[in-house]
Structure formats: C-alpha cells, structure tokens
C-alpha cells in the first residue's frame, strides 16, 4: 500500500461517526450606507489610510504623498506610472518599485480588507516588494463582512488571492503592532468608482 492510500485508510478507519454540516449564515447587519464608514474605521484599525474620493490629479497626489518615489508601478488604466508589472519578469525585481498602484475588485467593511488577485497584480510581488501601495477601490464594491467576501468568484478562479488589510506589520517584538515588517510600509485605499476620470 502506498503512503497516500495508507494515510487515507487510517483516517477512514479512525474518523468519528458522521457529524452533519451546520447551516451557515452571512450575519449581515448593516445598511449599505454604513458600509463605507465601517470600512474606513476598520482600515484605520489596521493602520491603512483611506482617501474617500479620487484626487483631481493622481500624479500630483502621489508626488506629494511619496516625494522620494522615483519608480511608480501602475497596474491600472487610470494612471500611467514609470513602470508596469510586466517590466518585472523576474518577480524579485519588484523590490525596485517605490509605489505600486493597483485596483481591487472587492473591499470588506468589517476588516478594512481589499482583495487582490494575480489578475489585478499581474506580477504578484508588486503588492509586497514595493515600498508603498495605493489601491483603487470602487465604493460599491465594498461588502459587509468576510462571509460575503468569500462568495467572490476570485477565490475559486484565481491562482493567488490575498485579502490585504493595512500595511505589513508585526507584533512579534513586545506584542504591539509596529510597521513596517518585510512587505509594504504604507497602504492607501482611494475610493474610486470604476471608469471614472483618468489622469
């Protein structure tokens, strides 16, 4: 008997008598008007920054917010950066990026999370090896909680998906969260409807 068969056989022999699966619920409480305020509060808890409407000039906004940034990698049509994800066929090279600009297809009010998948990023590492990340999110894409979020098709379809909630941090020294750890130093979400103005 192979290892696989042997393990499955042991599991089958030892597993307890069948216990039924419980009924799941979505536990939604909020009116849709409250989703954005809740998202904003949660993102704040996770040390992310929220900009509640598109800036008139995203380029100027980025220059002001990240004055030392030389390499801005844009994965969105709304903004042409100094590079695009495809410029980093060796994924480790994304470490050269100062700021990545991406769009998320889903926000989660409960946790301040945004979803990013391989299709949104194209080169996954632009979301981690860049110093800072700016994420565009359509306000109508915010759902209440994780139960609803996990019904998004990306989780079944994409090779890689991350619910990103604030910048990289760690509480491993002293138990209190400090930023940054190894990945992005800051995370900014701009509420930006799809197909709105481009700059």
């Amino acid at each position: 008997m192979g290892i696989r068969e042997d393990i499955l056989d042991r599991v089958r022999r030892n597993q307890p008598a069948a216990i039924p699966h419980p009924d799941l619920r979505d536990f939604t409480h909020l009116a849709s008007a409250d989703l954005i305020t809740t998202f904003a509060r949660s993102l704040g808890v996770m040390a992310g920054v929220l900009i509640d409407k598109p800036p008139d000039d995203l380029g100027a906004f980025l220059r002001e917010k990240f004055p030392d940034a030389k390499n801005i990698c844009s994965a969105v049509p709304e903004y042409v950066g100094t590079s695009k994800p495809e410029d980093y066929p060796v994924w480790a090279d994304a470490a050269k990026i100062d700021v990545s600009v991406v769009r998320s297809p889903l926000g989660v009010a409960e946790t301040g999370s945004v979803l990013l998948s391989d299709d949104d990023l194209r080169v996954n590492t632009i979301a981690f090896l860049a110093h800072d990340i700016v994420i565009l999110l359509a306000p109508d894409k915010i759902v209440e909680n994780i139960h609803v979020a996990y019904q998004h098709p990306a989780f079944k379809e994409k090779a890689y998906s991350v619910l990103m909630s604030g910048p990289s941090g760690s509480a491993d020294i002293g138990g209190k969260e400090v930023h940054p750890a190894q990945a992005v130093m800051t995370l900014t979400v701009i509420l930006w409807p799809e197909s709105a103005k481009t700059s």
């Binding site: 949660s42 409960e110 301040g112 994780i146 139960h147 996990y150 079944k156 998906s161 969260e177």
Partner: peptide, 26 residues
C-alpha cells in the same frame, strides 16, 4: 470558502484582538 469565512473571523480576534491579519493569503 464559506466555511473558511467563519474561521477567518475568529482567528485573529482570538489570537491578538485584531479583526483580521494584514495578509490573508490564498
């Protein structure tokens, strides 16, 4: 994934009192 949602909501709150970890990766 619908089952997973229950655990993601419980995990980080139980561990360190945060609503979620910064990166929940799939």
């Amino acid at each position: 994934h619908r089952d997973l949602a229950v655990f993601i909501r419980l995990l980080s709150r139980s561990a360190v009192g945060m609503p979620i970890t910064q990166y929940t990766s799939h």
